[in-house]
Design a protein around this nucleic acid. Sequence first.
DNA 1: TAGATTGTTAATCGATTAACAATC
DNA 2: TAGATTGTTAATCGATTAACAATC
Lengths: 227, 227
Amino acid sequence: MSKQNTPSLVVMKSTLSRLPLYYSYISRLEAEGMESVSSVLLAQHLNLNPVLVRKDLAQVSSVAGHPRTGFEVKQLLADIDNYMGYNKLDEAILVGVGSMGRILLTNSKFAKFGLNIVVGFDKDPYLCGLQLEGKHILPMEKMESLVQRMGIRIGIITVPDDQAQDVCDQMVKCGIKAIWNFAFVPLKVPEDVLVKNENLPSSLAVLAHNLAMKSSKANKTERIAEN
Amino acid sequence: MSKQNTPSLVVMKSTLSRLPLYYSYISRLEAEGMESVSSVLLAQHLNLNPVLVRKDLAQVSSVAGHPRTGFEVKQLLADIDNYMGYNKLDEAILVGVGSMGRILLTNSKFAKFGLNIVVGFDKDPYLCGLQLEGKHILPMEKMESLVQRMGIRIGIITVPDDQAQDVCDQMVKCGIKAIWNFAFVPLKVPEDVLVKNENLPSSLAVLAHNLAMKSSKANKTERIAEN
DNA sequence: TAGATTGTTAATCGATTAACAATC
DNA sequence: TAGATTGTTAATCGATTAACAATC
């Protein structure tokens, strides 16, 4: 039944990660009065393979596309909406109201994508009791009761690295089932808890490295030839 | 020679994205006085397959591991360092000194990963001339000369979505060759420019969706059986 | 020697792309 | 009908995992 080495960390890129791109672009088309959109057009604008787009849409669309015209814009938006769960607005809590925590807590774009960060927690007594754009900041002690009362299952960790595991443990104890981790430490969690690491420095390191690789490509080819 | 549909956007996950994790963990071991580390140990702590770790290390390590003891800690750190380019500190500029821009501009962790964000640009005249933890904020007009004078090749976009393409174009014009994009729009760039999109709302949407999938797994299995 | 670990070759898995028939 | 587009089946590609011989 259970695979031997399955980590509790799940990635699941692909379709799901492209859906917001489609949604965003199709919304724009809708605003411009367009009634239908083809996979070809989407693919061009988003720099993707049209077949890939078609497969993605096939997964989420409730109706088939029309051979000559493509997909109906309104219907498609509704379907993506529905598939991503945009409309049943998931709720989350956030721990660590530092600068990154504040961005997430106050960024209205998250709401547009179906996520409502209900409240922020912090251990700093001077922050507790304050509000940021309507979002309350509460002391850590209130976390358990709030999470359980509201049945919240998603937690966001934006505390310093050395406190992340501790906060994570507390979240798990409260019943949190998915954690979005901005600290740069691998979290230990029970098998049934999902962890998604957001690793900004690492992302940038990858970009810088790719750039370096690309620049040295010509040279490398020569070297291989020599070999 | 050139593949038909290759987008200029490069992902290159895998090894490269795990290197910082290794580095971080091995650093800790070094601080604790350990002299060698095995792929098995690394794998356990980072929730990875040991063979995968070994393959990753084989790519970066300048010397082979020792059959019974593993890899020498100091050597391995130096090799990862070197491979990622941590020590030759890449330089970047940032455009859009809003809340996200400020985080990146002032986050010391980036420096540790080999990236120095030299300066921030903003079109707001009230911001220009200010400093944030030693980082100057300059008007957009100064971008071109500074980028060219310093030979900077990495640009970070943290402006509102509707200005992203415009800023991107300016960067390209200055000679920027890699762009880290925090705006939620697909950027159009020439073939030789790398783009890496950082898409927070989307990441979270994926996490929430995965959680929902997981929860409904039991039910789904039943439904399939019924089918 | 026995045991832990390494590195490599082959198998598996999942995602993307190519090829193509079907539709309006 | 011709042409643009769809959806599907098979091929390709890359990354991960399994199996195993080699080493200290």
